[in-house]
Structure formats: structure tokens, C-alpha cells
Amino acid sequence: MSQWVIKGIGTGIKTTAYPRGAERAAGVTPGLPRGGDVGAAAPALVERCLTHALEHTNGVISVDSRRCVHCYRCVRGVGQPLNWEATYEWGSTIATPGLKNELGQPFRRSIHVLVVDAGDCGACLNEVKQLNNPYYNMHRLGFFITPTPRHADVLLVVGPVTDQMRFALRKVHEAMSTPKRVVAVGACALSGGVFAKSFVCSNGVADVLPVDVEVPGHPPPPLAILHGLLVAVGRKQPLPLAAAGYEPT
């Protein structure tokens, strides 16, 4: 058994500098379209977006990142690609004041997160799972995964909420004690993604539960989910709405 101990120590520290500093390694994020002025190419770009995440007014494209499913059709195979930003601090709140006080000070550094898969494709869930690996190690920030809603402070939902999971999801939320927050992770959980809206899928979690924090991306990388969780407990500022690309300014 000692071989494992030695190996473990010998590996050294791999953990990201985030949230103290920025993570600059390549490949940690797929990025999000940024929008902007593309002039005459705008209508063609908007046309190419199959999930209607893009809109344009006078050549200026605005992005609804909740609908973006990372198909890259607005940057690949087109003459004039859209701006694309390799950021990862994507967690944003759906407004409502009083959010700061809801979980309260005692919860800031010890949060039990319950993850519910409500029809996820496996990618978001895999990215949530990565938060436990040494690169991200969410424990150091006081986040713990719990299997039971009784211990949970934050409900993290991935997936568009399928018909047969809707009941279970409501039951989970119901079983959690207050104060509780709901974090919806991934484009599917925010808008239903490519599956919405059908006879078996909702238009995302908000159709079923009140959502407090949204993390766009398809899937959002681990750092974005981490940011979402930090936003949920008030330890990070949410992404300004404009930067998230919801509304053109």
C-alpha cells in the first residue's frame, strides 16, 4: 500500500489557482460566443444557429448563451466567424434582490451539493464529476457532494428535465430543508437545449423549479460550474448580465 502513498505525494500539487487566480491551461474551457458587430454577415450567421441563440439588429449580433449548444456553426465553415471568448466565469443570477442573504453567512464555507441528473447527456455530469479530481478539488472550497437532499444546501441540476424525472426532481427539491438554492448547469438545464420543447422534455429546470443561479455552456467546463457554485453562496460576483450576452446593450 505504501506505493500509493509515495505515488500520491510524488505527484505534487496539481490543483488550479482558481478562484484566487486565473487558470490559464489550454483546453480547460470551450468558451462561449461573444457576439458583436459583424456587419452584413449577421443574417447568415443567425440563420446558421440551429438553436436560435443568436439575434441581430443592424449587423450587431447578441447571444443568448443559455441556448448555445457549442455547435460552432457560427465560427466554423463560415466566412466571417463570430467572436468567441475562452472565458469560464459564467455563473449568473436571475436577478431577484435578497439573494445574498438567502443561504446566509454560516453556509459560505461549507456547502453540501446535491447533484440531480434530470436527463443530462453525460457531459455536464462528467464535468461536475471532474470537480472532485485533484485539478479542481472542490472540497478545498468547502463544497461537498451529498447523496441525500436532507443534508443538501444547493441543488445542482443538469439536463433538460425529462418527463419521467420531473416528479423525482420536484421530490428532491421538496425534501431539501431551507434555505436552499438551485443551480441549473448546462444549456439543456437552462433552455432545454436541442431536446426542447417536446412531449418528454421541459424547457429547462425553470419550468419545474425556481432557479437561482444559471451556468450556461454545453457542457460548462468544471471551472464554470465552480464559479456557479461560488456565486450561489455569494463568494463570487455573478457574471454581469451584459457580458453573459443575454441582452444587447
Partner: peptide, 20 residues
């Protein structure tokens, strides 16, 4: 696993090879 996800991300832009 995370390193391989980063390899994919660095290579193709997306960690799960979407949009290729």
C-alpha cells in the same frame, strides 16, 4: 481523464469534441 479532456479541448476547442 482531465488531462485528456484538456487535450481534446486544446485540439478541437471543445472538451467533448462537439461541432467537428
Amino acid at each position: 481523464e482531465e488531462e485528456l479532456l484538456r487535450v481534446s479541448g486544446e485540439l478541437s476547442g471543445h472538451r467533448y469534441l462537439f461541432g467537428l
